[in-house]
Design a binder for these strands. Structure first.
Lengths: 253, 253
DNA sequence: TTCTTTTCACGTAAATTTCACAATGCCCGG
DNA sequence: CCGGGCATTGTGAAATTTACGTGAAAAGAA
């Protein structure tokens, strides 16, 4: 089940006006955002401005040759490139593919095949993009709240796991929702009303006995010393909050 | 002038002996490690053992259809797949590409073009692999899930074989789908809704009696002591999960 | 038939709601 | 500076509701 029918920014580099308007119409009809240019020089400019995820490239261009454009593009962009060319010689295909093209279609081609190849290429590109954004350098991407060192409080949102005092802790759904709401807004005091509405729904704005009960449950499960809370803190008359996570010393609001 | 001619593990799935030996000879001559198989069933076996980076796939196969093999492979492997087929119909190409193929070549094809397309495909795949190895842990796609030692639970995604307590276990299609979904996300709690939607389809979000019944069936077949589950665990009010596989101790890095 | 999926009802365990009361902190008059 | 009055928060434990595990049986498919 490929559901990679995302809306794309597509740059169409094509000399022939007929083909250009055909592609423009077909791709726009499918909800994509399409820009077209006539030659390689324009293409470089547009690629820099428009930042397309996909480039459809005709090799036969008036000013700057298609292969030259491709190599220039590859110096700074990893956009998916599919070459559309009337030429069917092996040597041209190989040079295009080795210059950085992801695929090569010979005209005339079927629109549906083009679209299928776009989907296949974007499947790979999406995977890479996803990995890149969750990148290796700073791995703060993994949704985890940490406070008080390794034996402090750790909330792993992705797995729905909680650790405190070095041990795995079991939370009920409501307890988890409440803690989740607080840790996602760490450092910020959430009012009774905000918490009740977000955890219990919009019709519970007055029931702050609920809050007291569940804050208590959480403290019993998470605080080393429930008589002196370190994680679940009260702002008298306002609401509750948890401290900012470790290594986030600066306060913003 | 990309000479990304790294040595690859290549699995060649090809019915025709002539083509098979041709590819074998040509690819080995270029220093690649090549395995060849004649049909889809063998292909699944070899893919699981050999773990190729590249699969060259003929669609016309005696036992297991090429497309079926491709879909099965994609359940657990992200190896690059290039389809080599004598058929040139649009519908076949599209189905292959949408089933997970990265490229599609029509026979007869030029060897040099094939090699160029391999280089282009591996360029993308390498980028993803590089990011993956450096990136955060999590969704490593594996051919088997193992938990609780040799007599524990073993799920072989490639062959759809299940072992528990040292014995082969038969699962119905729905049971397998459910277990598969859980083991593929080992360590993560999947909500009732998520499981129902993924196993039964998007229209079953409320039917959690289904889940109870099938979890029960799975427990009866897989758990040594069904009264105290070790593999199929419930998070009350949320959903179900299975523990992380052996040798993947949760690093709270 | 036989195997698989869907559906139902009930006992038990767990989670939520509700209540009553104790402790704490804050304001303001002494 | 002190202490009563008042509002808010903490504590404990019941009552209520919900969710899960269980067995079994009907319905559907091969």
């Amino acid at each position: 089940m490929t559901t990679t029918d995302r809306k794309l920014r597509i740059l169409c580099v094509e000399d022939d006006p007929q083909m250009r308007s055909f592609l423009l119409a077909q791709l726009r009809a499918r909800g994509h955002q399409v820009q077209t240019v006539r030659d390689g020089a324009q293409a470089i400019d547009q690629a820099a401005i428009f930042e397309p995820e996909l480039v459809l490239l005709d090799l036969a261009l008036p000013t700057l040759d298609g292969l030259a454009f491709l190599r220039r593009l590859r110096e700074w962009s990893r956009a998916t490139v599919i070459v559309l060319s009337a030429r069917d010689e092996e040597s041209v295909k190989i040079r295009a593919l080795d210059s950085g093209a992801d695929d090569y279609l010979t005209k005339p081609f079927s629109l549906n095949e083009l679209l299928a190849r776009v989907r296949a290429a974007m499947r790979r590109a999406d995977e890479a993009a996803r990995l890149r954004s969750g990148g290796p350098g700073g791995d703060q991407s993994r949704a985890v709240y940490r406070c008080g060192g390794p034996d402090g409080l750790i909330v792993d949102f992705a797995h729905r796991h909680i650790r405190s005092g070095g041990k795995e802790v079991h939370l009920t759904p409501t307890e988890y929702e409440l803690l989740s709401e607080l840790t996602r807004n760490a450092g910020k005091v959430l009012t009774h009303r905000e918490l009740l509405q977000r955890v219990w729904g919009p019709d519970y704005s007055g029931e702050n006995t609920y809050l007291r009960t569940f804050i208590r449950h959480l403290r019993r499960k998470l605080e080393p010393d429930p008589t002196q809370p370190r994680f679940l803190l009260n702002e008298l008359g306002v609401g509750y909050y948890v401290p900012l996570p470790d290594s986030e010393t600066e306060s913003q609001s």
